[in-house]
Simulated scan of single mutants.
Amino acid sequence: MSVSMENNPLELGRPVTSKRKFKDLLLQKDNQCCADCNAAQPKWASANIGVFLCFKCYNVHRSLDDHISRVLPLGDEWSDDDIDAMVEVGGNSSANSIYESYIPEGYAKPSPDASQEERTKFIR
């Protein structure tokens, strides 16, 4: 008896696609909250920074130039370049291990109920 494996690229020896890697990244526990304030269920991402964002933090990132933070909704179709950039960073934990190491003394990560002013100060 023969079983078809055409729907499983790993079993056929084909590489995993960028879109599949992105979906796997979305499922990681640390990416189930906003990278900046830890709010649950982010609906946005900064592709070039490689983090997932809530709507309130997205608004701050959106005010930055695209070369600083290129924000995209998770429900839209993404270009392969944006997906590859996001996957390369590895998500919230990986990006935050870099960016949060540069937080000056006296700055605290905002909470999900932080004011827009607090978010802006932290993100900028």
Rank of each mutant, 00 (worst) to 15 (best):
M1H: 14
M1L: 14
M1E: 15
M1T: 14
S2Y: 15
V3S: 12
M5G: 11
E6R: 13
L10I: 06
L10F: 11
L10E: 15
E11G: 09
L12F: 11
R14A: 09
R14S: 11
R14Y: 13
P15S: 01
V16E: 10
V16G: 05
V16P: 11
K21G: 01
K21Y: 05
F22W: 12
D24M: 07
D24Y: 09
L25C: 04
L27W: 12
L27D: 15
Q28G: 01
Q28M: 12
K29S: 13
D30T: 03
N31F: 00
N31A: 02
N31P: 10
Q32P: 14
Q32C: 12
C33F: 14
C34I: 00
C34L: 02
D36N: 01
D36A: 04
C37H: 07
N38C: 15
A39Y: 05
A39P: 06
A39M: 07
A39H: 07
A40E: 13
Q41S: 11
Q41T: 15
A45L: 11
S46N: 04
A47S: 15
A47I: 05
I49N: 08
I49R: 01
G50M: 03
V51S: 05
V51Y: 06
V51P: 10
V51M: 02
V51W: 06
F52W: 04
F52T: 02
F52E: 04
F52C: 08
L53Y: 07
L53T: 03
F55Y: 09
K56V: 09
K56Y: 11
Y58A: 10
N59L: 10
V60Y: 02
V60F: 07
R62V: 15
S63C: 10
D65L: 14
S69W: 12
S69L: 07
R70I: 08
V71Y: 06
V71E: 08
L72D: 05
P73Q: 00
L74F: 03
G75R: 09
W78L: 09
D80F: 00
D80H: 02
D81R: 09
D82P: 06
D84R: 12
V87Q: 02
V87K: 05
V89P: 10
G90V: 05
N92I: 06
N92W: 05
N92S: 02
N92E: 07
S93C: 04
N96A: 10
N96C: 12
S97W: 03
S97C: 08
I98D: 01
I98T: 05
Y99F: 09
Y99D: 02
S101I: 04
Y102S: 10
I103R: 11
P104V: 03
E105R: 04
E105S: 11
G106I: 02
S111E: 13
S111K: 10
S111G: 10
P112K: 00
D113T: 14
D113V: 14
D113K: 14
D113I: 07
S115T: 15
Q116K: 11
E118C: 04
T120F: 01
K121Y: 06
F122I: 04
F122D: 10
R124S: 15
